[in-house]
Structures are given as C-alpha cells and as structure tokens.
C-alpha cells in the first residue's frame, strides 16, 4: 500500500484515506510530528558544536597535554555533540500525534525517561482549534492544534504540526462520522 510520506515523515496520510475514514475497523488516518523547519535551531547548534574543535584545537597545545589526552578531549567533545543531536532527534521523532478513525493519540517525549501518552476516543472530542504561530509558521504552513475533550480526559495538543487547517478538517470529518459531539 502506498502512503503519502511528506516533510520528513512529519505528515503521513494513507493513500486510501477516504476508504479508511469510513471503515468500521480501526484505521490510522494521520500521523503528525513537528514540522521539519522547527528542527533548524538545534541543527544549527549541532553544526556549531561540530565546528568548535576545528577552530579551537590549535589552542589545545596551551594545556600541555600529551597527544592521547588531546585525542580523548576531541573525541569526547564529538561524542557529546553527537549525543546532543541524536537526543534532539529522539524528541522530534517520538513526539507524535496519531489520528485513527476511532481515537486520537498524543505521544509526548518530555525527556529521556518521561514520556506521556494521552488518548481519547473520537466521540469525546468537543472542539478542535488551530493556532498560527507567526510569520514563519504561516510561510511554512505549520501551527498548533488543540483538541478539547469531554469530561476529565486531558486535552490533546499537537504542536507545530504541518498543514494545521487540513488536520482540523480531517479531525472534524472524523468526528462527524464517528463521534457524537458536533464539531465546530
């Protein structure tokens, strides 16, 4: 089955979306991650970290270390930079929102040892709102989506996701088909 994988896998919809929407069995309709452009700040920081030893390695001789110690310092610097980038990628990759034709799931990786998964059934959805975040978000078409739910179920947030208007439209159609509450 072909799938529409766009924007670095941050906006995934099945090729058979319309069929899946009305399917009685549970089908995944949409998987969301933050827009790839939001990764730019930490990618630039990572680039800076990689470049630092190139500019500062001549000054290492001032510390009067032996070559093995110098090698260890440079190696551990690169190891730290690598871990910084991999950890940031981890948070981006595992902060995801999932919309199925029966439920909505929000997976938040807050830190390495603390991940929170919030889920609600479509029938509990009361309101779906989107929020644009400024000029850059308008240009790259990303924004925040807030899903208000009935009762004590915590609200669900998809932050900085691509094509927010289309996501809201899809969730509203889903609620119309499978939910009881009236969408906005």
């Amino acid at each position: 089955m072909s799938t529409n994988h766009s924007l670095w896998h941050s906006y995934l919809i099945p090729a058979t979306l319309e069929k899946d929407l009305v399917n009685k069995e549970e089908r995944v309709l949409l998987i969301l991650r933050a827009h790839p452009i939001t990764t730019l700040p930490w990618l630039l920081v990572g680039l800076g970290l990689v470049l630092i030893p190139i500019f500062f390695s001549p000054y290492l001789t001032l510390l009067k270390l032996n070559p093995n110690q110098e090698l260890f310092l440079i190696l551990s610097w690169y190891a730290l930079s690598f871990s910084y980038l991999v950890t940031k990628f981890f948070f981006w990759y595992f902060n995801l929102g999932v919309v199925t034709n029966q439920k909505i799931v929000d997976v938040d990786a807050n830190n390495l040892l603390n991940t929170v998964t919030t889920a609600t059934v479509v029938s509990k959805v009361e309101e779906v709102n989107k929020k644009s975040l400024g000029i850059i978000s308008s240009y790259f078409d990303y924004g925040d989506i807030y899903i208000e739910t009935a009762g004590e179920i915590p609200n669900i947030e998809f932050l900085k996701v691509p094509h927010p208007s289309e996501v809201v439209k899809l969730i509203n159609s889903n609620v119309k088909l499978h939910g009881h509450s009236k969408p906005r």
Binding site: I13, P14, R27, V28, L96, A109, T115
Partner: peptide
C-alpha cells in the same frame, strides 16, 4: 528508544499496512 519504537512506531507500521 526500543521502548518508544514499540509504543509509537506501531502506528506508522499500521498506517502503511492496516
């Protein structure tokens, strides 16, 4: 990472092949 893959990536897998 293995734990998160098990919990989260299953959805991506199901999207590709329900």
């Amino acid at each position: 990472q293995i734990k998160m893959e098990r919990n989260a990536l299953i959805y991506e897998h199901l999207l590709n092949d329900p």
